[in-house]
Design a protein around this nucleic acid. Structure first.
Lengths: 144, 144
DNA sequence: TAATTACAGATAATAAAAGTCTATAATATC
DNA sequence: GATATTATAGACTTTTATTATCTGTAATTA
């Protein structure tokens, strides 16, 4: 069991976007370069994030992406849910003729809940000041 | 991201095994029937669990599997680690030239730790009395 | 009008998981 | 000792999901 690379890229991209000066945007091409990714692949992830309302895009020259305004409170869980979907990590594969559901699944759900709580209480903004100077200036340089 | 079916089957099998009367065993064939699985596939999972020291096997007529003696304290995490391996859910895919490691990875590891803590503190034996009467008598009937 | 950008959908490549098949070794029972 | 029953091991195939690419379209600014 592993988090997808897509989630990996999404989280990194979101952290980068959060260091963007207010009102500025940065192109997918640039975001792909910084992370050494193929632009078209990253674009799928960005589209998901945009549809999920976490980021906004403007097409055309001098266009690009930025974090959605009125979203100063984006959590890790928000990003992960948007990319991976809402499904639980564990689904019982056996037919149980009980009304309580599967006892094993219940335990697994509780454990996952503990993880999600931490992810829901950690916000991207919390990491903003941990972004290294190198990335920070790279982004600033490529911003529109 | 999903737990593997192997983990699913392993957890169920372990719970079934825990309801076995002391000293008795049950054959892989029977365990496969109960869960409607192919015996050879289940056997791979059982072998892993045996190598991991969670269960013991005796070959031959009247042979089969049982929970390792001196292991009254098997946790969910023990089973999951044995089947899935020890790796973490998240590995940063970007090269960071920082000594602190990836800040995103650090958050993800902490969250996962919270989940693991719950899994480490929930023991199979805790579920023993929740096993439905149907399964319980099935196992008893097939036990050696 | 041209350059730059996002968006969308089809398709291909890769990797991991799930499952099958076959042969071998050990053990209890008769 | 022969036989049936069981576990063990490894090669192999199938399936599925992820990752990635390719191509074309639409929107926007200069």
């Amino acid at each position: 069991m592993k988090y997808s690379k897509a989630t990996n890229y999404a989280l990194h991209t979101m952290v980068y976007l959060i260091t963007l000066p207010k009102g500025r945007t940065i192109g997918m091409q640039s975001l792909a370069e910084i992370q050494d990714l193929s632009p078209t692949y990253l674009s799928k992830i960005l589209t998901k994030l945009a549809k999920g309302g976490l980021i906004e895009s403007t097409p055309g020259v001098k266009g690009g992406y930025k974090v959605s305004k009125s979203r100063d409170d984006i959590s890790f869980l928000d990003v992960i849910k948007t990319v991976e979907g809402e499904t639980n990590l564990f689904h019982c594969s056996i037919e149980h003729n009980q009304n309580k559901g599967c006892m094993i699944e219940n335990v697994m759900i509780q454990a996952e809940e503990n993880m999600k709580e931490e992810l829901a209480n950690t916000f991207l903004i919390d990491l903003a000041d941990q972004v290294d100077e190198n990335s920070r200036s790279l982004i600033k340089g490529k911003a529109n």
